[in-house]
Amino acid sequence: MNKQQRLSRVFLYVGLVLLAVMFLFPFAWMLATSLKTNTEALTNPTALLPAAPQWNNYPEVITTLNFWRETFNSLVMAVGVTLGQVILSALAGYAFARLHFFGRDVLFLLILATLIIPFEVLFVPLYLMLAGWGGWLNTFAALIVPSLASPFSIFVFRQFFITVPKELDEAAMIDGAGYYRIFWMVMMPLAGPAVATVFILSFLAEWSSFLKPLVFNSSPDMYTLQQGLVVILNRGANLVPNLATLMAGVALASIVPVVMFLLGQKYFVRSVASTGLKG
């Protein structure tokens, strides 16, 4: 390394550390505020650290937020949608990649075209449909079933199955295996990367989703964590919330995705990178 290279290396590190501080600051502020007393948080906003950490804020917010119930609701919704998407999309993706049937490619193009249509445009008719069917609103069915089929997930599986060597299913077919057997015994065991991608992206999306529970849920029993944070804590009866417990709630609501990310960073990065194949 010559002098100039060493100098640019130093600049790079200084810049990166500054950026990292900027990126981590909101997390640090959230955690520090979650350990203040509410008076401290409200009257001494510039002090970064609490005078004495108030661990009590956490049990307190677990009660006011109905945290366990909401975590349960969020998990059922996110896991339900994710598992359903993996199975349905893998089945469809396999057919679009490997099997032959009339109209296959037109059908697939049609599915691709619906990729750009967001839930945000459809929540009004979906709400009216669910309300009209009677008994759907305020149920897990409403939170899960409309999100089960995902054009994007089908696309991910199709793109993956196309790359599997044809010899594998041909060999299985000669051995007398039918489509279902080939799907379960040959294709699915190989589909780990596609499963991981769909699992991560759809779990994150569902865990974070807010508009859907906001519109489909009115009963506090069905609130998801995101909904509880906004409806119970941030917009409670009093407009100025208990800031310290609010931040404790935000921290608790972020544990699941953050821990998942720290454990599987590699897979998260790969999944997000794979969304680039869309274009």
Partner: peptide
């Protein structure tokens, strides 16, 4: 064979039709 192959896409297609295509028309 064709029907068998097509059946793999059925669950997803039915759901997409109900919860994506139909709502577009409904809007």
């Amino acid at each position: 064979r064709q029907i068998q192959a097509f059946s793999f896409t059925m669950p997803a297609l039915v759901l997409l039709a109900i919860f994506l295509i139909y709502p577009i028309g409904y809007v």
